[in-house]
Amino acid sequence: MTAVEPFAQTKRRVRILQLLEASERAALAPIDTDKLHAFAYLADVLSPVWGLRPFDRRVLKTGRPPYYADLQREVDSLVAMGLLEVSQPAYRKAPDGSMLFQARYALRFASSHGRNIRLALDADIEATAGQSYLDELARALASLRDEDIAAASAEDATYDDPNISSGDIIDFGEVAHRMRTGHATDSLDSLFPDVRLTPGRRLYMYAHYLGRKVHAVG
């Protein structure tokens, strides 16, 4: 293990705690596995709306909504550390016949370590800015139909790009791929040129487009 890896691992764990904090604030927690990964993916692909860089720069496109193996591994670690609590563990059969582990995750409020980490994050300017973004995105997602949230991520303009096949890596660092979601959020201006579109509003508007798309294709 190199010296960089523990730092990257810590950063990822902090990111997960922030995702779960935003989920708590939006009343999405305990959040199921699919929704958590959907939230993480949309947080990456929509980060330019908030002037931020994506946390993960790559995701594997599969026949199902976005899934980050690294994120899941660290979620499991945080459960083992007592920082997260897990409920309703179950296996679900995927359309391809494979078995998928599902559970619901939430912050474990009783953890004194968790409280200390939260205090440290609240005092960090960069972490606070990132948390504000995740809070707003979580609120936008929570305003969708509950059952549409996970499916919405698969309808994202970049993830749903017909030029990217299942099994391909989506690299948010590649301009062409980043462009599709970015173009969608930029296009909102031409629809409503007279309306003040704050970054928060753009998140709600784009999220509800995805929500509509779930039903348009379903």
């Binding site: 330019p48 936008a140 305003s143 303009a157 301009v175 980043r178 462009m179 599709r180 970015g182 173009h183 969608a184 930029d186 296009s187 909102l188 031409s190 629809l191 409503f192 309306v195 509003r201 998140l203 709600y204 508007m205 784009y206 999220a207 509800h208 487009y209 995805l210 929500g211 509509r212 798309k213 348009a216």
Partner: peptide
């Protein structure tokens, strides 16, 4: 971000995109 007007037009002319954007704007 480089411009690609055709991609923008694809979204702004899409009825689902417009309807979803209105839903989001109203709330």
């Amino acid at each position: 971000m480089p411009s690609d007007s055709s991609a923008s037009e694809t979204f702004s002319g899409n009825a689902t995109f417009r309807a979803g954007a209105i839903d989001g704007l109203l709330i």
